[in-house]
Design a protein around this nucleic acid. Sequence first.
DNA 1: GTCTATATACGGATAGAC
DNA 2: GTCTATCCGTATATAGAC
Lengths: 179, 179
Amino acid sequence: MAEILERAQANSGSFYHFFDSKEALLLAVLDGYLEGLEPVIVRPAFARRRDPIDRVFAILQGYRERLVETGCRYGCPLGRLALEIEAENLPAHSRIAANFTAWIGAVRGCLEQARDRLPPGLDLDALATFVLTTMEGGVLQSRSSRRIEPFDQSVAQLRNYFACLTGEPSRLKKRGKRK
Amino acid sequence: MAEILERAQANSGSFYHFFDSKEALLLAVLDGYLEGLEPVIVRPAFARRRDPIDRVFAILQGYRERLVETGCRYGCPLGRLALEIEAENLPAHSRIAANFTAWIGAVRGCLEQARDRLPPGLDLDALATFVLTTMEGGVLQSRSSRRIEPFDQSVAQLRNYFACLTGEPSRLKKRGKRK
DNA sequence: GTCTATATACGGATAGAC
DNA sequence: GTCTATCCGTATATAGAC
């Protein structure tokens, strides 16, 4: 709170004119993240690549850049809150879950576009969820070790999985070369 | 702190006889987790399965049980701390990273035993890291949504990846059937 | 709508007797 | 080693003038 008021150059009296409580601000922030998903996360990534599977990895690349820019101090705010907020706080958790659902939905859209290159029975929801899992788990590990390797290794394995699924000649080298 | 003192039936004076600060306790706890890794996480899982790859998934199964037991309120304490503790707290983060390294080492040991079933050039460290990524990312999502599905879907995709790697007939059904 | 001032409570930590 | 008592800073929130 102190930092927010400082950055806003406002006093606590002003803050409580607009928000009922600190809790209420948190919920508003979580709603804001949902609005920001498309313009901040998805659109810039999609602008870089046209191929739907490449777009999935372009989203992950965005998080990689956040890690690199911050010397691996970055932690996805939604991931942080998912683990930090007490489990009993349902309003917050349901908004976090809504953000994840939307994120997964964007990835799932890509996978549907690439459906003909993927095995017919594959569960696209599960695969899209797995992409988010890879991002969150990779960021978490890179943050704790201050090294980009855990994130890169995780994404490389996911990439290799996609290669297996699409029947590409999979890249099984010790160090997967960048395209 | 209040909860710790309450549970220990001790007073703050007693606490500060044994620990210099709340910080010092955190570091001791993180060292304790490292000691607990083998007896609490690894050994029970290995006792269930003999096949090295099955053992990897038995470890993940252990986390699944924690989720189910708590109605998906569980959050891996190390994962929570990795994202919650300020990045500047290096003593804490280096201990968290040490825990992750040891966890990955246990999985890596299994992968080495299964080396002949895996593609020759495969980076076993990267794959072991990816297993941890899957666990952490899956737990994180299941906690936020209070549903086991994100965890199960992630593990199912990882299982499918292993099937691809070992050349098993991969299970690409919408709902991967339980063994 | 924003300001100053302040209530209230809690957190981490300490003092010193026993 | 443990107890009671307490300090001190900070955090969230409120009151009421302007």
